[in-house]
Structures are given as structure tokens and as C-alpha cells.
Simulated scan of single mutants.
Amino acid sequence: MTSRITGGGRGARGTAVRVARATARDAKRLTRLIRASKAYDGRYAPMVAGYRVGPDYIETHRVFLAVDADDRLLGFYALVLDPPELDLMFVADAAQGLGIGRLLVEHMLDEARGAGLADVRVVSHPPAEGFYRSVGARWVGTRAANPPAVMWDRPELVFPVA
């Protein structure tokens, strides 16, 4: 799937973005993108400090990445089919506001539809809740903190697929 991103205005107008299935070889760059995310600065930093996306994870789940014409990683997501969940979704800091997240959600919903899913749950990073709602997710509850891994409550949302 190739799309042309026209939003944002940070010099990316007209940038061709390709969404493709990740391979085991992408594991290190996906891990780097997560660990470098400014969305996890401050109190959220411990959540991703030791986080790793392994080749086995990529081979087990539907992991897709968005890259530009030079194969620079702009973002990625992971769709778990059973139970249906958007497990990971990250957009590179430099690509924020360019429509990459929206493109990845549209792609994820197409994948979920193709897999026959009725909806997809996401337990959101608290600062990302507004984004998920803006692209069609509905709030369904709150996932309580689970120390020491997660020290804060998180919004739980659902994307209707149909």
C-alpha cells in the first residue's frame, strides 16, 4: 500500500509513504523507534526503557511499518488477532502531525476487516487517547495501573471495524 501524505507542512508535502509488512530484520529499528519516542519522556520513560520488539513477535503478529521513499521508518503498528488488539502503534517524533498515524490506523482497520474482526481494542498510552478518539475509537473503560510495569491507569478504547 502506497499513499501520498499531504498534511503537516513540515516539508513532507507530497511525500510517498509505503505501508508494508515488517520482517524479523526490522526488529531493531522498531525497538529503537519505541525507545526514542518523546511520548514516553518523563514519568512514562520506565515503560519503554527496556522494551524490545523481537523477531518472534513480528513473525507471530501482523506488524506493519510506514516508510518513506528512502526506506526511513516513519511509524508502525502491531495487530494481534486473538483477542483482537492494537498492541503497539508508534509514529517517529519527526513524522508526528504528517498523517502517518491516521494512515496506519486506516491500514490496521483494513487488515482487521480482512481478518473478519468486528472490533479492535486498544489500551492507550494516556497522552494518545485524543488521537485514537479522533480516528474513530470509542472509550469503553479504564485499565488500572499494574505496578511495577505500568504505574498509571490507561484508557481502554475500541475501534469498530465494520
Rank of each mutant, 00 (worst) to 15 (best):
R113S: 14
R113E: 05
E106S: 13
V63I: 15
V53H: 05
D41K: 12
D41F: 10
Y40V: 06
E85R: 13
E85M: 13
R113K: 15
E106R: 14
V63P: 00
E59H: 11
G116M: 04
L117F: 04
G50K: 03
R72A: 15
A115M: 06
E59V: 07
G101E: 04
V63Y: 01
V63N: 01
P46H: 04
R62H: 15
P84D: 09
A45T: 08
G114M: 13
V80W: 02
A94K: 02
V67K: 03
Y57D: 09
L103Q: 07
A112N: 02
A92D: 10
V105G: 00
V48L: 12
V63L: 05
R113Q: 09
H61G: 00
E111N: 05
G114N: 02
A69S: 13
R32W: 09
R52W: 01
A78S: 07
F64S: 04
V67W: 00
D26H: 12
L73V: 12
L74C: 08
R72Y: 13
K28D: 12
V105M: 05
D71Y: 12
R35W: 03
I34S: 07
D87M: 07
A95T: 10
Y77S: 00
R72M: 13
A95L: 06
L73G: 02
R62Y: 00
M89W: 02
R32P: 00
I58D: 02
T60K: 15
D87R: 13
Y44D: 08
A27V: 05
L104V: 03
D71N: 14
L74M: 11
R25W: 06
T60P: 01
Q96E: 13
P84T: 09
V120I: 08
H107Y: 06
D87P: 00
V48R: 10
R102N: 11
Y40D: 12
F64Y: 14
T60N: 08
Y44N: 13
M89I: 13
P83T: 04
L88E: 09
E106T: 10
V63T: 15
A92F: 03
L109Q: 03
R43G: 08
K28L: 11
A45G: 02
L88R: 02
R113C: 06
R35P: 06
L73P: 00
A69N: 09
R52H: 11
L73Q: 05
L74I: 12
M47I: 14
Y51E: 15
R29I: 10
G116A: 03
L65G: 13
